[in-house]
Amino acid sequence: MAVTTFTDLRQIKDAAGRHLGYSTWLEVTQERVDLFADATGDRQWIHVDVDRARQGPFGAPIAHGFLTLALSNLFLPQIVEVRNISLGVNYGVDKVRFPHPVTVGRRIRGGAEIAAVRDIPGGVQVTMRITVEIDGETKPACVIDALTRYLA
């Protein structure tokens, strides 16, 4: 069940600037990192060679930045639900940043806020700022300005 539920587009507009809540924590496992490496072909040693990565700059393998970005699609439905619409669709991203790496074994979660809302034909376009936090870290793993279109 989502932390925040909207039942119409007006409620989304009224929530501009508001933080919507957080997802549950997720442990980043080596298995998940390896599966992502297999799916994308990005098998750089810092991600998949556990022994070598332990000797590397982070002391452990790290998740791919794009894996962390992709996990926002796991977190967002836990945070926000929009009802009574015909369609919600990812429209793209304005900006993505990776301020801090996620080492394997750490827990991450997503938080979301509505940064902006603008009218489009038949609905609204929402800029959702999704911040992926690392348990115990002050810097986030990833900050995404995701664009979603909700149509009435």
Rank of each mutant, 00 (worst) to 15 (best):
P140N: 04
T138F: 04
G21F: 06
L76Y: 09
V132T: 14
G110S: 06
I108D: 12
D51G: 02
L87W: 00
I46T: 00
F36L: 04
P121C: 04
L26Y: 08
L151P: 00
D38Y: 08
L147N: 03
F36R: 06
V143P: 12
G56L: 10
D14G: 11
T103K: 11
A53Y: 12
P99F: 07
D94M: 10
P57K: 14
D94H: 14
I85Q: 06
V126L: 04
V102T: 13
T127P: 07
I134L: 10
R97W: 07
E31S: 08
I79C: 01
E133W: 03
R52L: 01
K95A: 00
D14K: 15
D14E: 15
N84V: 06
T103V: 14
R43W: 04
T68F: 01
A63R: 00
F36P: 09
A2V: 01
D42R: 03
G123S: 13
L74E: 13
E113T: 13
A152R: 09
H47K: 11
D94K: 15
H19Q: 11
E27P: 10
G92M: 04
L35Y: 00
A70W: 00
S72V: 06
T29D: 05
V132S: 11
G56W: 12
F75P: 00
I134C: 10
A16D: 07
D38N: 09
V104G: 08
R149W: 06
Y22T: 15
V89K: 04
D42A: 06
N73S: 14
A16T: 15
G56F: 10
D94T: 11
Q11K: 08
I46H: 05
W45L: 10
T40A: 08
A146R: 15
L71D: 01
L71M: 15
V33K: 04
P101N: 03
A39M: 15
R54V: 08
G105V: 10
R149F: 00
I46V: 02
R54T: 09
A146F: 08
L20P: 06
I79S: 11
Y22M: 09
V132Y: 03
I120K: 07
I12C: 03
H100V: 13
V126E: 02
I12P: 08
V143W: 09
R106P: 00
Y22E: 15
A16H: 00
D94A: 06
K13M: 12
L20M: 11
A152N: 14
P61S: 15
V93E: 13
T7C: 00
R109S: 07
V89Q: 07
A115Y: 09
G110N: 07
P140C: 01
F66Q: 03
P101M: 10
I134P: 09
A112C: 14
T5G: 10
V93M: 10
L9T: 05
I79G: 02
I46Y: 03
V80T: 05
N84L: 04
T131V: 12
V3A: 12
G92C: 09
R43T: 10
L151N: 03
I134R: 04
M128F: 12
M128H: 13
